[in-house]
């Protein structure tokens, strides 16, 4: 039996569709309800919905053999897992953004507001820029507007939210997409099952034009 952690939400639904097309359907999952665990005993898969940022925890700790997590989560928490496939969906980028008028002259410590503390730290350490990290849990965009920070480090998908708040992308740190991850120990004992599923999904991955 393969335990698969799916991220709740639109991305998770897209991933499930890929799994279904790859030959791992589980009809019950489409019924709207409060149930969180769905099993197709015949095919040997069990799906469960978890908070997207928790997927890597379930996989790292072995409660799920495989899971689908955004690269942002993998970079932020560095779980000890295998990253087997780039699904090329849920695409966006981790970027530095600030007020359109903002210019970093490098004369003073840069105040950076973000949900992704480790990614921001690593990015600025790589360019030896002294920063003051301000950890926020949501509505990051208002930090530069209210003067709480100079810039933000956050996920940018279309850039609409930024535009509406008079902000602009200053630089892209890293492109983000959904990745298929596996628990390292599970991979040893369920190698053939995991390989088969990965190949099934690989065939569903759409290439960039």
């Amino acid at each position: 039996m393969l335990n698969i952690a799916l991220p709740k939400g639109r991305l998770g639904e897209k991933v499930y569709d890929m799994l279904e097309r790859a030959g791992y359907p589980c009809e019950a999952i489409k019924e709207n309800g409060r149930k969180l665990i769905f099993e197709n005993a015949e095919l040997g898969v069990r799906y469960f919905w978890v908070k997207p940022s928790d997927v890597s925890i379930y996989v790292e700790r072995g409660a799920a053999d495989i899971g689908i997590a955004g690269k942002d989560i993998l970079l932020e928490y560095s779980p000890d897992v295998y990253e087997l496939l780039d699904l090329n969906i849920g695409k966006c980028r981790m970027a530095v953004a600030g007020k359109k008028t903002f210019r970093d002259d490098g004369k003073r410590t840069l105040k950076v507001a973000t949900k992704f503390v480790n990614i921001a730290k690593a990015h600025y350490a790589s360019v030896s820029r002294d920063i003051d990290i301000i950890k926020l849990n949501g509505s990051i965009e208002i930090a530069p507007i209210l003067g709480l920070s100079d810039v933000i480090v956050d996920i940018v998908e279309t850039g609409t939210t930024l535009k509406e708040n008079d902000l602009a992308v200053i630089e892209t740190i890293v492109p983000i997409s959904a990745r298929l991850i596996s628990n390292k120990a599970s991979f040893k004992f369920k190698t053939a099952e995991i390989e088969k599923l990965v190949e099934g999904i690989r065939a569903q991955v759409k290439k960039d034009d």
Partner: peptide, 9 residues
């Protein structure tokens, strides 16, 4: 080394 049933090396 890994043992079945243990989630890490």
């Amino acid at each position: 080394g890994f043992l079945a049933g243990i989630s890490e090396g």
